[in-house]
């Protein structure tokens, strides 16, 4: 494992057994997370981004879930094989998670303070008074007004944005090395989203935490991420720095994503170019490139064989047959609504 990396995911395969057969939710995902970095994992629903993040936390119920292949390396340990007892020592302490829905992921019968203290008492072995002191400090840090009285309140007494702040306080209480944020702002209004993203960027600097940000919103990615992993149908189709992905995307799916999004800072005459069709069913994924059936540049080989992941630059990697030396050269669509248009 590279010393600069906090986490390495290598060729991860996760499946779920259902009545209809085996759903291959994650089919060979690899990426790494460097210290202090924010990696955004983007993709549409069903692309496997949440399954990947839950696999890192080992929150996949087994059965029906199965780790079929691959490893998740964290501090030299393979998290897919670690005994549950040891995993409990990592979960919440070294790796913490913020969930999408602050309404349902807090315990409604416990005060906010108790929920923050829970991890501190368990992992940091703090006494009650110390833990309460620390909990107050966390509430202050995430910007909750009058933390002294808020600490004894229940989640239903908090607004959506405040609950998300409380959840961040819980996640960061033990100063984890890695924070997984699964759609942390999707359930929030834009002005509240701006507050939360601001807070997360601020805390990342202060606490030197590495962040994996799962999202479908490219705007949020542009604002917070250092590197981007684009997923489609259980596979990583492209990775690169945030500048590379927005300014020089190479995979037709990434082009499609950018082309589907209207941009507020551009005139409304720019046409949207949607991706036609729908993602494949992962009960029986296609044997070739999963995007081939929706790809305007698909060739014969695309439907037959999955392309290798190739290096486009030191940091950008793409899995597309167009990267092959024998492939016809295809220009990035110049009318892309996204940043690639410049």
């Amino acid at each position: 494992m590279d010393r600069n990396n906090v986490l390495e995911v290598k060729d991860l395969h996760v499946s779920f057994h259902t009545y209809n057969g085996e759903v291959q939710a994650v089919r060979g995902v690899s990426f790494e997370e460097k210290k202090g970095e924010t990696v955004a994992v983007v993709g549409e629903s069903g692309c496997g981004k949440s399954v990947t993040s839950q696999s890192i936390m080992r929150l996949i119920p087994q059965p029906p879930g199965v780790f079929k292949h691959g490893e998740i390396l964290f501090e030299g340990n393979d998290l897919t094989k670690l005994p549950e007892k040891q995993m409990e020592g990592i979960r919440g302490k070294d790796i913490a998670m913020i969930f999408q829905d602050p309404m349902t992921s807090l315990n409604p019968t416990m005060t906010i303070g108790k929920q923050i203290m829970e991890g501190l008492v368990k992992h940091r072995k703090l006494g009650r008074a110390e833990a309460k002191e620390k909990a107050l400090e966390m509430l202050r840090l995430v910007g909750i007004p009058s933390p002294g009285s808020r600490i004894d309140q229940y989640p239903h007494q908090f607004s959506g944005g405040m609950r998300q702040r409380a959840m961040i306080a819980i996640a960061l209480a033990c100063a984890p090395k890695l924070l997984i944020a699964d759609e942390p702002t999707t359930a929030l209004d834009v002005t509240i989203q701006a507050q939360i993203l601001d807070l997360m960027n601020d805390l990342k600097e202060k606490m030197d935490t590495s962040i994996i940000l799962i999202t479908h919103d490219l705007g949020v990615v542009a604002e917070t991420a250092d590197r981007v992993v684009v997923m489609y149908a259980g596979k990583v189709v492209e990775t690169g720095t945030v500048e590379e992905i927005f300014n020089r995307p190479r995979h037709p799916y990434t082009w499609g994503l950018m082309g589907s999004m209207p941009r507020m800072d551009l005139s409304r005459d720019t046409e949207l170019t949607p991706i036609l069709g729908a993602p494949p069913n992962l009960l029986s994924p296609p044997k070739g490139c999963p995007f081939a059936s929706r790809c305007p540049h698909a060739m014969k080989v695309c439907k037959e064989q999955m392309p290798e992941t190739t290096d486009a630059s030191g940091t950008q990697r793409v899995a597309c047959w167009l990267e092959h030396p024998m492939a016809p050269s295809v220009e990035i669509p110049h009318d892309l609504v996204g940043g690639a248009s410049k």
Binding site: V220, E223, M264, G339
Partner: peptide, 12 residues
């Protein structure tokens, strides 16, 4: 409200 909307372009 307008300023809160993130724009999908890291340079902007």
């Amino acid at each position: 409200l307008l300023s809160a909307v993130p724009i999908p372009d890291p340079d902007t």
